[in-house]
Amino acid sequence: MTGSRERILGRVRAALADVPRDERPDDVAVPRDYASAHTGDPIPTLVDRLEDYKAIVHRVATGELAEAIAETARRRSLARIVVPPDLPTEWTAATSASVVRDDGLAVDQLDAMDGVVTGCAVAVAETGTIVLDTGAAQGRRAISLIPDVHLCVVRADQVVNGVPEAVAQLDPHQPLTWISGPSATSDIELDRVEGVHGPRILEVLLTGE
């Protein structure tokens, strides 16, 4: 194994014989004059783009979040909802569904859940993307993956305009999941249909405007 490591690195160096010996990686200039964002109006843009990719968006006044979650759960007939251990208890205070805190549930237990409620780390307006970084109110990756309905709470102050702003804010050492709408596929005649293995329904509750 060490042999192949040295062999490959040796081949790479031999292949790059034309590169001047004193050239450093940073000597290869990268033009960075692309835009940091293409919108200055993040909230309406986010709503528009989320809906374009078949997510459902609710704009919720801060004090009405619990009721909005309860209403969505009722409408979707969610009997059992899994939540991350640190989800604010007031978010699920109004729902009549049974709320299960994830304390390391087995996959089969997760598979028995009808829905999941999480927060997020960042949302990207112009691509309609929500990023989860397993931080506050998000839990581990599996809980937002296995249940079929994902209710995601996004605070207005978590919304950035474009991808470069999101990349700059996020910590790569956390496992990240970038979510743009419900799961989808274009594998049949390149015709996009929503709903494959990941949650088939994504409802976004946008608060704090």
Binding site: Y53, R141, T177
Partner: peptide, 21 residues
């Protein structure tokens, strides 16, 4: 690639994560 602003899911990971994955 798919002609989307963003594909539905992008995962990034840096080594194994404690208690996750």
């Amino acid at each position: 690639s798919t002609g989307e602003r963003m594909n539905p899911y992008t995962s990034t990971w840096t080594g194994p994560a404690e208690g996750d994955g």
